[in-house]
Design a protein around this nucleic acid. Structure first.
Lengths: 244, 244
DNA sequence: CGTTGAGTTGACCATCGTCAACAGGAGTGG
DNA sequence: CCACTCCTGTTGACGATGGTCAACTCAACG
């Protein structure tokens, strides 16, 4: 229980006085760290470097040496790949509680940058991998996270391969809302922190199609477009569209 | 080193006389089992039930209780999801050395059936999960398999979301060839064991588009369509198309 | 008050899907 | 052995979904 962040400030959710560390972390119960007992947290905390990133800053770059892994504590990041000729596909978004670097591989498989201002616990990959050897529970939980991620990726393959633009957008909004439910930050209004371009690159569409589709859903009174998000006017029909 | 298969015959690659079990398995070195030392294989072998499935038979069904996990030793299977209205998305193919049930979850996240006649080692999930507790190496390797699978899924998201029909087909052929390379079964001719419909459902296309695209690639002398596969006439241009 | 960047909307068009016809091989039964 | 069916795959004609290009609005910012 020492070691302040190398990069910047402490996580918003850790006591600024530094007396408690991981123990009072708001996202602990839903992140990989939940696998550790209270007395083990000191050990984890001593490895953690708390970092803050402004919106648009890059956390990791595809194909570069993967020396760090991250636990997101605040904000939204996008994970994406760029083809040699410049097309971008967002392969996922990570939000508080999510873990970056599940693969523990030598190189990052994708780039990641901050959509909103982001706070994260950063760990040296080597040190973290070492800790996993001593903490089977933590490793189990990491594996659960990996297979959950795999499951999300497979769901997204269905969306990308077999759904219409309208269904894609509905899927995205509903899935995004559901992800925030676990953080108890859900509401009738779904906050969309990312740009239209991000949504398009996640759904395999163009920005114009996303915009038009949202407009059409609004015209049909399924949603209301509000600043930085949408409000679900008819959640049931949206869910039906997303399930189809 | 005992216990014959409950379901059907032994794996093609285990001695029929049953004296050696996993030790002489042809795919051991590339499957999860490679994490175990020779002396640990008996333990694994005693858990294994060898099963054979004819083409088209279903190994597991989405949402049903996941009581078994599988190690594919021979043949090709398809992993797929069906939407409520009947559209199918193939989320992956598994070939010898691949593992089914990485998630160790209570229910299967997708359906799996045999594309060709298939042989597999089947394990009771509970027993296998138990073994993982005692064999950290095995669990590590399982995790590697899971993150590799995740990586493949993310690559496929790029293909589904951001590539043209022609690029999709080229990607598929090249990736399929490369997967068989590790099994030392590669050749100039790429064997496509699955139907056009399977390829279409994997690439988010229709059967007609797959057929037309293959015909066009053949017309342009990039490939030659042969029974049960294609021959690469111009591998470099195919690779370039796949990389694009 | 001009500039910039995100988002929206329209007009037009291309890619890919739909529908339909047809070819060829495998299996079946007379 | 041949006719028949069935199934997979191929090809063509046509059309719809979504992409491209362009103009415009609006808010943020200097």
């Amino acid at each position: 229980m020492n070691s302040p962040g190398d990069k910047v400030s402490r996580p918003a959710n850790a006591a600024v006085e530094g007396k408690v560390g991981c123990a009072i972390c708001e996202v602990r119960s839903i992140s990989v760290c939940a696998a550790l007992e209270t007395h083990e947290l000191c050990q984890l905390f001593s490895l953690a470097h708390h970092a803050a990133f402004p919106a648009r800053e890059t956390l990791v770059r595809q194909d570069e040496d993967a020396d760090s892994v991250f636990n997101i504590t605040e904000g939204v990041v996008r994970l994406y790949k760029i083809t040699p000729d410049g097309r971008r596909q967002i392969v996922g978004f990570a939000i508080p509680g999510d873990f970056l670097g599940l693969a523990l591989a030598d190189r990052y498989g994708f780039s990641v940058d901050a959509v909103t201002p982001v706070r994260a616990c950063r760990f040296a990959r080597e040190a973290f991998a070492h800790l996993l050897d001593e903490k089977p529970h933590l490793f189990r939980r990491l594996h659960e996270f990996a297979t959950h991620e795999l499951s999300l990726a497979q769901d997204q393959m269905v969306v990308l391969g077999r759904r219409t633009a309208e269904e894609k957008v509905a899927c995205f909004i509903i899935a995004w809302r559901d992800r925030w439910v676990r953080l108890s930050r859900s509401s009738v209004t779904v906050e969309l922190q990312m740009s239209r371009q991000d949504i398009a690159d996640f759904l395999g569409l163009t920005i114009e199609t996303v915009s038009r589709t949202l407009s059409r859903l609004a015209r049909e009174r399924l949603i209301l477009i509000v600043p930085d998000g949408v409000r679900l006017l008819n959640p049931q029909r949206m869910e039906a569209l997303a399930a189809a």
